[in-house]
Structures are given as structure tokens and as C-alpha cells.
Design a protein around this nucleic acid. Sequence first.
DNA 1: GCCAACGTTGGC
DNA 2: GCCAACGTTGGC
Length: 155
Amino acid sequence: MKYWLIKSEPHVYGIKQLKTEKRAEWDGVRNYQARNMMRDDMKIGDLALYYHSNCASPGVVGIARVASEPYPDPTQFQKRSKYYDAKSKKEDPRWILVDFEFVAELSEEVSLSSMKEDPRLAGMLCLRKGNRLSITPVEGKHFRRVCKLGGWKPS
DNA sequence: GCCAACGTTGGC
DNA sequence: GCCAACGTTGGC
């Protein structure tokens, strides 16, 4: 099983919304590296750290699980969507996504600043300066450490 | 294939 | 709002 970190802006789609809706199409990813990870590397059951970005207190706030095989992102064909891509063809979709389902909300948010300070999280891809990838792979030891800091135990 | 210009991300 | 870092585009 692999581990991931997925970023979302809380005012666009926050952990509360995933908790309410239980499951979400991870649409709007328009970066080839991130797409390739969803298309090629994610497996149903993989766990992900749910990270709030671009907000007052960025950090990991929950846990989500890969819940589907990869399939074309429907928003790329929707003219009114801000994710519409006129160059993508139905017979050869450019953008691929997976579904995520809600697993848990951390009892304690693990802030970006606290992650940077933790020597046990040194080397995490998402902590690298200038990293803008909305999806990154996470090592098992780092995943378990963040869960522990967040007060969550896998059942 | 190079690279300047431009757009986006995301912390601060 | 600023700006560093990075990705994409398009002229050549």
C-alpha cells in the first residue's frame, strides 16, 4: 500500500465537505506529474494525508482513501467549468482522476510549521521549498508520524 | 531544442 | 498583496 499527500484549498473543498459528502471526484488537477500519479500509481485503498493549502493555517487536517480506479476527469469536457480544457478530446482524455473517500478528521491539525520543525519529518517531499505539486507520494514512516501527531490511529 | 514571457501556486 | 518557484507556451 502506498501513501500520499493531497492538497486542497479549504474554501474550495475542505475536509468538512469531504466528511459530509463522504466521497469526492478529485477533479481539477491540471498538472501532468500529479495526473500521472493518479493514473499510474494510486491503488484503491491507498491512504492520503488531506492537506489544506492557501489558507490562514496550512497543514494536514485529515485522512482520505483512494476509492476508485482512475478515469477521465469529467470537468475537462464541461464548457462552463473553470477546469474546461478545449484541447482535450473525448476519445483521448488529457486529464485523469480518482475518487477519494473520507476516512477521518484529525483531532489535532498538524500545521505546516510544526511539520517543518519535526526532525522525523525531514525530507518529506511536500516540505521541500518551492514545491507546488498538489499530490505527492509520502513515505510510510512520515505518514505514520503525521497520523500520530494528529492523534489518529489506523483501525 | 532553446528560452523569454507569462500564468499559477501557495506561504507569508 | 507580495513574490519565489515552478510549469507551460510559443516564437525562433
